[in-house]
């Protein structure tokens, strides 16, 4: 494999950074050169968070060039639209089908883009889109916070790495008492990939 580039986008508190840590570690254990770069502004809850993860035989830049992202993993619908230009035309978008309106929306000043406008924007960039009810699945499993791992599970089905590698990285990177739940969430996600 020459290279695979992932952009993870979400809102502070959604576990975007944990997901990118797991993804980077999986790449390393699979024998790739790996770089990961987090972009977070000033300390805050509820801000926009992105993380670049790159796998390859040799990776130079820690940042992925615009238009070169192979997989956009979006943890929130609006954030998908914010970063869609980073995707390689025809690349894959996996979206946690969940909306977190920013304060300007809840205060009634701005409008949260509707479902149709999201679909329209996506259709201009790629046909390879999957909406995943990750939040709902996570809640059914007993903890909304594992939605990020459900989405990772979906991603994993697109990549040629055995599930055991993912599961062992999850076991090493989440607190012991949450390992089983996270692994279940991962397996569930892995079965959902289209």
């Amino acid at each position: 494999m020459n290279k695979t580039d992932f952009l993870l986008a979400g809102v502070g508190g959604q576990g975007t950074l944990l997901a990118s840590n797991i993804l980077a570690e999986v790449g390393l254990r699979a024998g790739y050169d790996v770089k990961k770069s987090e972009v977070h502004g000033m300390a805050q809850r509820g801000g926009s968070v992105t993380s670049h993860v790159r796998w390859g035989n040799k990776v130079y830049s820690p940042l992925i060039g615009q238009g070169e992202v192979d997989y956009l993993l979006s943890f929130e619908r609006l954030e998908t639209m914010r970063y869609i230009e980073h995707l390689r035309p025809g690349g894959t978008v996996l979206i946690n089908d969940h909306a977190m309106p920013p304060i300007s929306v809840t205060a009634g000043k701005d409008i949260y883009p509707d479902d149709k406008s999201l679909q329209d924007v996506l259709a201009q960039v790629t046909p390879n889109v999957q909406f995943v009810p990750a939040m709902t699945i996570a809640e059914e499993l007993g903890n909304a916070r594992v939605a990020n791992i459900v989405l990772l599970g979906v991603l994993s089905a697109h990549l040629d790495i055995p599930a055991e590698v993912w599961l062992s990285v999850i076991a090493d990177m989440v607190p012991a008492k949450h390992v089983a739940l996270n692994q279940t969430a991962f397996k569930k996600g892995r079965t959902l990939a289209k």
Binding site: V11, G46, G47, S48, Q66, G67, L78, M81, R82, I84, E85, L87, P89, P101, P102, S104, V105, D110, I111, Y112, P113, S117, D120, V121, Q124, V125, T126
Partner: peptide, 12 residues
């Protein structure tokens, strides 16, 4: 790179 037409996006 793609440059899709987007509605105004509320900032965070």
């Amino acid at each position: 790179t793609a440059s899709p037409e987007k509605p105004p996006l509320p900032p965070r």
